[in-house]
Design a protein around this nucleic acid. Structure first.
Length: 306
DNA sequence: CAGAGCACCTGTGGGC
DNA sequence: TGCCCACAGGTGCTCT
C-alpha cells in the first residue's frame, strides 16, 4: 500500500499522540517483523525512553527517542499503524494480523497491524546509524534537493527505463506504483522510455507532475484501494482523483483514447499510449496476460477531449 | 549496470 | 458453487 502520501498521512495522524510519551514495552511481536534484531533487543534499548519526534524518510516512519535512538516502521503493502483506542470498531481488524503493539506512557497503545506480514520494525541505536540508513535513499521529492538541475543531470546518467528508475528508492525517495503512473501520465512520458532520452522540457514537466500528485494526495490523506486506513479507519480521499491508475479500459481523461494496462518492471502499469507515446526502440514485451485490456470493445472509440 | 524472476505473506476476484 | 491461479500499494536477493 503506502507510498509517500500515505506514510505521511499516518505520520501526521499519529504525531500528536506519541510525541512526549515514553515507551513502556513492546508486546505481541511477531518475531520475523523485526529486521536485524529481536523484540528483546528493542525492549532493552528503548523501554523508558521518551519519544521526541515522529519523522518520515522515504516510506519509513521513524520514532525518534530522546537519546537519538530510533525505531523505524515500514508498512510495506498492508501495514497499518494506529492508536488502539481509535480503532475499536474497525471491522477488518483481526488479532491474527497484529505484528506488534507499542505500549506508551499514559496508557496509550499503538498497534502495528499487517495482513500480509511484510511490514518491518528496525532498531537504530544512534544518529550515526540513522545517517547510514538515510543515505541509502535519493532526495525527498518535496524538498529542495529534488531540484530541476538535480533531476536533469541524474536522468541523463541513467539508461534505465524511467518507471523502474522512479520506483528505485535509492534514486528518488517515496514514489511507488500509483504515483509513478500518475506522474508519467501527467507529464506525457511513456514508462518504457529510457531516462537519458527524456528531453529538458519533459524533465521539467515530470518534476512538476511528481510534486503535484504527491502534494495533492497528501492533502487528500492519500489513496485507498484495498485497505489503506489511518486513525479510526479513515480512508484516503485521493482515490477519486486518480487520473490513470486503475483506469484501464476507460477513456483517457485527456484525449479519450482507451487507457491500457501493461507490465513494466513486473508491476501493473497504466498508460495512455496516445498521450504517452511509446519510445521508438522500446521492446513490445508486455505480456498482458489475463487482464487483457482488449476489454472486448471495438478498439477505436472516438476521442473525447475533456 | 540493467532487467527478470522469485521470495516474503495473505486475501480477493476472475475464469472456468 | 467451488477450485485454481493471477494479482495486489514494496523491497531485496540471485542470476543472466
Amino acid at each position: 500500500m503506502p507510498e509517500l502520501p500515505e506514510v505521511e498521512t499516518v505520520r501526521r495522524s499519529l504525531e500528536t499522540y506519541v510525541v512526549g510519551r515514553r515507551l513502556r514495552q513492546v508486546v505481541g511481536v511477531w518475531p520475523r517483523a523485526i529486521e536485524g534484531g529481536s523484540p528483546e533487543a528493542i525492549q532493552a534499548r528503548l523501554s523508558g525512553r521518551r519519544i521526541v519526534g515522529l519523522e518520515r524518510r522515504a516510506k519509513f516512519l521513524s520514532l525518534v527517542f530522546d537519546d537519538d535512538a530510533r525505531l523505524l516502521v515500514h508498512l510495506r503493502m498492508t501495514g497499518k499503524l494506529y492508536p488502539e483506542s481509535s480503532r475499536r470498531r474497525a471491522p477488518e481488524e483481526r488479532s491474527s494480523h497484529i505484528s506488534a503493539r507499542l505500549e506508551l506512557s499514559g496508557g496509550l497503545r499503538i498497534v502495528f497491524e499487517d495482513q500480509r506480514r511484510f511490514g518491518r520494525l528496525t532498531l537504530l541505536n544512534d544518529g550515526a546509524a540513522y545517517r547510514r540508513f538515510s543515505d541509502r535513499f535519493g532526495p525527498e521529492p518535496l524538498e529542495a534537493g529534488f531540484s530541476l538541475d538535480w533531476l536533469r543531470h541524474n536522468l541523463q546518467v541513467h539508461r534505465r527505463m524511467i518507471k523502474p528508475l522512479l520506483l528505485d528508492q535509492s534514486f528518488l525517495a517515496g514514489l511507488g506504483n500509483i504515483y509513478v503512473d500518475e506522474a508519467l501520465w501527467l507529464s506525457g512520458i511513456h514508462p518504457l522510455e529510457s531516462a537519458h532520452q527524456i528531453d529538458d522540457e519533459r524533465v521539467g514537466r515530470l518534476r512538476r507532475a511528481i510534486r503535484q500528485v504527491l502534494r495533492r494526495s497528501i492533502k487528500a490523506n492519500g489513496t485507498t484501494f484495498m485497505n489503506f486506513r489511518f486513525l479510526g479507519g479513515q480512508s484516503g480521499g485521493y482515490t477519486d482523483q486518480l487520473l490513470v491508475f486503475r483506469r484501464d479500459g476507460q477513456p483517457c481523461l485527456r484525449c479519450g483514447q482507451m487507457v491500457t494496462k501493461m507490465r513494466v518492471a513486473q508491476r501493473g502499469t497504466h498508460v495512455c499510449e496516445s498521450c504517452q507515446p511509446r519510445p521508438s526502440g522500446a521492446p513490445s514485451t508486455q505480456r498482458g496476460r489475463r487482464r487483457a485490456k482488449t476489454s472486448s470493445e471495438s478498439s477505436d472509440s472516438p476521442p473525447r477531449p475533456l
